[in-house]
Design a protein around this nucleic acid. Structure first.
Lengths: 201, 201
DNA sequence: ATTCGCATGGTACATGTGTATCACATGCAT
DNA sequence: ATGCATGTGATACACATGTACCATGCGAAT
């Protein structure tokens, strides 16, 4: 046989074709045929490897999530100081470079889909933000105990607010209202306000 | 003739049918036929009053914007104090009651559409946030000059951050991650932090 | 009474969609 | 050599969509 590596490779190839289309033209343009053409395979193959369109959408979403997580870990790097970690996590989801623009746009394309699908999709997509928020709160608490944040500050509230803010900032960048650098500046400003003042890069 | 009042009334009736569908089932389900059925008219009439689907979408979006603005003015009411105005504007766009949930969900439905349409739609939808942000900044500056906000605070940054935050909070509520009251609590917390402390109503 | 323009209904057409079906290859186990 | 599972192709089908076209009614101006 051709080996299971080829099988998974084909799936990856097709799913990434979907993500590419979702990024550039939106999910509504990601028909089975369009995905097949983009991936350079026949329509039948897309059907063969994913059976149904919902399966393809779900698989691609999972891959997108993995890509975002990989980007986060890359941005966190060897940072151990809570403030550096928080800054990395928040700023890496802002559409500032090509990769983040791609990921953000593609997530936005899925967003509308999730809103009107009480199916598995909603469950799959509502979990990551919650754990991320918990992670941020933990980091902020550590920073507070280290004296970098005023003791009276509520870290859960701050974490929720910051996460919502980068989400909204991302939307404004995608909507063409402002530029990625400006969004980053706004985020940095609020981080400076939360922590004592301007911190190291 | 039947009078121009009837004409405009028909347009309103049809456009609101679209908005109702966009709210409950998403814009992708808002086909010409579905809108016609929802409005209780024939497909031909939808064509007659709006010619093209794009025209219908644009008109409905304009009406949605008017509804949101009306809601804002209603929420601002007779409030004159900057803090009260800012609080009203920001909290009235959070999905806390039926009307705001409807408006927010419908805007979200349009959002994806705007992302992949460099047409008139983008221009039409990118303007309001900018003027709203300017309005908020002005209110915050007034509050700062009145001593309610620390003099070293940057009001433009704060306005941009708050607007992005309510936007992100709205998304999280729509995504089922939290409830409207919790979102409101997070917003209030950050307003308390920006202004000296808890304020009246 | 005729004519004209607006309003309305019904329906056709071309296209795009997801999915199903039939056909053929190719390689491995028996 | 034969049979069977996996991979691949081409095409058919049923349906939904936006838009265009033809016909009819009906009030008003001539």
């Amino acid at each position: 046989m051709t080996g299971k590596a080829d099988h998974e490779e084909r799936r990856r190839q097709i799913a990434e074709a979907l993500l590419r289309i979702a990024d550039t033209e939106g999910l509504q343009s990601a028909s089975m045929r369009a995905v097949a053409t983009e991936a350079g395979v026949s329509l039948r193959l897309v059907q063969y490897y994913f059976t149904t369109k919902e399966g393809l959408l779900l698989d691609a979403l999972a891959r997108l999530g993995a890509q975002l997580q990989a980007r986060m870990e890359r941005w966190i790097g060897e940072a151990r100081a809570p403030r550096a970690v928080v800054t990395a996590v928040l700023s890496c989801v802002l559409p500032t470079d090509a990769e983040s623009r791609r990921i953000t746009r593609t997530y936005a394309a899925y967003y509308t889909l999730v809103l009107n699908d009480p199916e598995v999709l909603a469950k799959q997509a509502a979990q990551p933000p919650a754990v991320l928020e918990g992670f941020l709160a933990k980091q902020l608490r550590a920073a507070r105990e280290a004296g970098e944040i005023a003791p009276e500050r509520d870290v859960e509230m701050a974490a929720a607010g910051l996460l919502a803010m980068v989400n909204g900032l991302g939307s404004s960048v995608l909507g063409g209202q402002r530029d990625g650098e400006q969004a980053l500046a706004i985020l940095r400003h609020h981080l400076d306000e939360l922590f004592g003042g301007p911190g190291a890069g």
